[in-house]
Simulated assay, not measured.
Amino acid sequence: MINFRYHMVSLAAVFLALAVGAVFGTAAANGLASDVLSDSLSAAHKANKQLRQTADDLQAEASHKDDYINETAPAVLRSTLVGRRVVVVTTPSGRDHADGVIEKLELAGAAVTGPIDIQEAFFNPKDKLDLLALTRRSAPSSTLPANSDGVETASALLAKVLLTPDPPGAPLVASRSVVLSAYADAGYLTGPKRIDRPADAAVLVTGAAYVEQDSADRNRAIVTMAAQLGTAGRIVLAGTAAGDGSAIEAVRGDEALTGRISTVDGVAGAQGHVVTALALAERIAADRVGSYGTAEGADALTPRQR
């Protein structure tokens, strides 16, 4: 008869066999999995190396493209803005892109005033009543928008002093200086406090849309400024992109604004700088308006050459 001790030894043998099998099975499986994982890692490293090389090649290509654009710009822009006076106005996000735009405008022969750097306070909703009061004090007799929108009223006055032609025989140098000095002294802009003559056209350079608190109000304020400049004279709005909330997107989506404001996206690069100068030349010489660049809403990459 099988006794209890035999049962215990048998059960122990069974459990031992299971344990040994599990150990050897796991070792074998781990060996196979390790080989598969090693192969996958090796393939991933190779793919990553290839992607890095591709990225480096694309970066070099982009750099060479800018070099090509800069080298051909003199031939493309030559004399397109000779004898024209242009004022460059920047928003806080567009300040870093203004130098490239100014360089191409001057290469085209323009006499550039600016940049006039509009400060954050100008677009801050909390400062709109102070901005409105300052504007009223600076030009009490001017015909300005009769509302409580400080940005609209101040932008209308700036547009007037920067773009409206002087009356015959009565230059408005003093009044322009009063307005520009008032805004500069209050911290709403930096730039020249005296402009002897109004400009023939303006470029408003902006960048990425606001995304923080009060972003919707601030983004609308930039569009408001563009609209007032476009009401007073010829203007090109140059921005980095046409994404959600951007001034470029807002103007391109507004039929009334697209009828009087040319837009250029991609102003962070050399191509955008050249196209901005070409768009301004078209705006002045042919009185044509267009939307240029590669972003959504653009009609063409560059203005048509005629």
Results as ranks from 00 to 15, higher is better:
224 T>K: 10
148 S>P: 11
73 A>L: 10
185 D>L: 15
251 V>C: 03
243 G>K: 02
303 P>Q: 07
71 E>V: 05
268 A>W: 10
293 G>C: 06
278 L>Q: 03
290 G>W: 08
2 I>T: 13
191 G>A: 10
154 A>N: 02
205 V>P: 06
263 T>I: 11
294 T>R: 13
300 A>D: 14
142 S>E: 14
119 Q>C: 08
114 G>T: 05
68 Y>Q: 06
248 I>D: 02
16 L>R: 10
186 A>D: 09
273 H>N: 03
267 V>Y: 14
195 I>P: 01
215 S>Q: 12
242 A>N: 01
285 A>E: 10
288 R>C: 04
258 T>K: 05
155 S>V: 00
103 E>F: 14
174 A>N: 12
107 L>A: 06
84 R>E: 09
252 R>D: 12
196 D>S: 12
235 I>C: 02
29 A>E: 15
241 A>E: 15
195 I>W: 09
34 S>V: 06
60 A>K: 14
46 K>E: 09
94 G>T: 10
91 T>G: 07
20 V>A: 03
253 G>I: 00
197 R>N: 15
185 D>Q: 14
60 A>P: 11
95 R>T: 10
188 Y>E: 04
274 V>R: 04
162 L>A: 08
169 G>S: 06
87 V>R: 10
241 A>W: 01
261 I>F: 13
18 L>V: 11
64 H>K: 05
36 V>G: 00
43 A>Q: 14
179 V>D: 05
276 T>D: 06
216 A>P: 04
268 A>Q: 12
186 A>C: 06
211 V>W: 10
106 E>R: 13
20 V>F: 07
134 L>E: 08
114 G>C: 09
51 L>R: 05
270 A>Q: 09
40 S>W: 04
126 K>R: 08
80 T>N: 12
273 H>L: 00
137 R>D: 08
94 G>Y: 11
228 Q>M: 08
158 L>G: 04
83 G>Y: 05
67 D>P: 07
132 L>D: 02
2 I>P: 13
58 L>G: 06
129 L>Q: 09
277 A>N: 06
301 L>Q: 12
54 T>Y: 11
216 A>G: 13
